[in-house]
Computed example of a mutant assay.
Amino acid sequence: MTKDIATPARTKEILKKYGFSFKKSLGQNFLIDTNVLHRIVDHAEVGEETGVIEIGPGIGALTEQLAKRAKKVVAFEIDQRLLPILSDTLASCTNVKIIHEDVLKANVRQVIEEEFKDCKEVMVVANLPYYVTTPIIMKLLEDQLPLKGIVVMLQKEVADRIAATASTKEYGSLSIAIQYYTEAKTVMTVPKTVFIPQPNVDSAVIRLLKRDKPAAEMQNEDFFFELMRASFAQRRKTLMNNILQQYPVGKAIKEELEQQLNDAGIDPRRRGESLTIEEFAKASDVLYPLLKTK
Results as ranks from 00 to 15, higher is better:
Thr2Met: 15
Lys3Thr: 15
Asp4His: 15
Asp4Pro: 15
Asp4Cys: 15
Ile5Val: 14
Ala6Arg: 06
Lys12Ile: 09
Glu13Phe: 09
Lys17Tyr: 14
Tyr18Asp: 07
Gly19Asn: 15
Phe20Tyr: 15
Phe22Thr: 09
Phe22Arg: 08
Gln28Val: 08
Asn29Gln: 14
Phe30Thr: 00
Asn35Trp: 11
Leu37Ser: 05
Leu37Cys: 04
Leu37Arg: 00
Ile40His: 05
Asp42Tyr: 06
His43Met: 13
Glu48Gln: 11
Glu49Thr: 07
Glu49Leu: 02
Glu49Ala: 04
Gly51Lys: 03
Gly56Met: 06
Gly56Asp: 01
Pro57His: 08
Pro57Gln: 13
Gly60Met: 01
Ala61Cys: 14
Thr63Val: 07
Leu66Glu: 04
Lys68Ser: 10
Lys68Met: 10
Lys71Thr: 00
Lys72Gln: 09
Val74Tyr: 04
Glu77Pro: 02
Ile78Tyr: 04
Arg81Thr: 13
Leu82Met: 05
Leu82Ser: 04
Leu83Pro: 02
Ile85His: 04
Ile85Gly: 01
Ile85Thr: 06
Leu86Gly: 04
Thr89Met: 03
Ser92Thr: 15
Val96Gln: 03
Ile98Thr: 07
Ile98Arg: 05
Ile99Val: 09
Glu101Lys: 15
Asp102Phe: 11
Asp102His: 10
Val103Trp: 01
Asn107Ala: 08
Val108His: 02
Gln110Gly: 12
Gln110Arg: 14
Glu115Ser: 12
Phe116Ser: 05
Lys117Val: 06
Asp118Gln: 07
Cys119Pro: 08
Glu121Ser: 13
Met123Gly: 00
Val125Pro: 00
Leu128Phe: 06
Tyr131Glu: 11
Thr133Gln: 08
Pro135Gly: 00
Pro135Ser: 01
Lys139Cys: 02
Lys139Thr: 06
Glu142Ala: 09
Glu142Gln: 14
Asp143Trp: 07
Leu145Pro: 05
Leu147Glu: 07
Val152Arg: 02
Met153Ser: 13
Lys156Ala: 10
Val158Lys: 01
Val158Thr: 07
Thr165Trp: 03
Ser167Trp: 06
Glu170Val: 10
Ile176Met: 03
Ile176Gln: 00
Ile176Leu: 11
Thr182Ala: 06
Val187Gln: 05
Met188Arg: 08
Thr189Leu: 14
Pro191Thr: 14
Arg207Cys: 13
Arg207Glu: 14
Lys213Tyr: 13
Met218Lys: 08
Asn220Phe: 06
Asp222Val: 12
Phe223Cys: 05
Phe224Trp: 02
Arg229Trp: 08
Phe232Glu: 00
Arg235Lys: 15
Ile243Met: 12
Ile243Arg: 04
Gln246His: 13
Gln246Phe: 09
Gln246Trp: 00
Val249Ile: 15
Ile253Tyr: 05
Glu255Ala: 12
Glu258Met: 10
Gln260Lys: 13
Gln260Trp: 02
Phe280Ile: 07
Ala283Ile: 14
Ala283Leu: 13
Asp285His: 15
Leu287His: 04
Tyr288Ile: 03
Tyr288Cys: 07
Leu290Trp: 01
Leu290Cys: 06
Leu290Lys: 03
Leu291Met: 03
Leu291Gln: 03
Leu291Phe: 02
Thr293Ser: 07
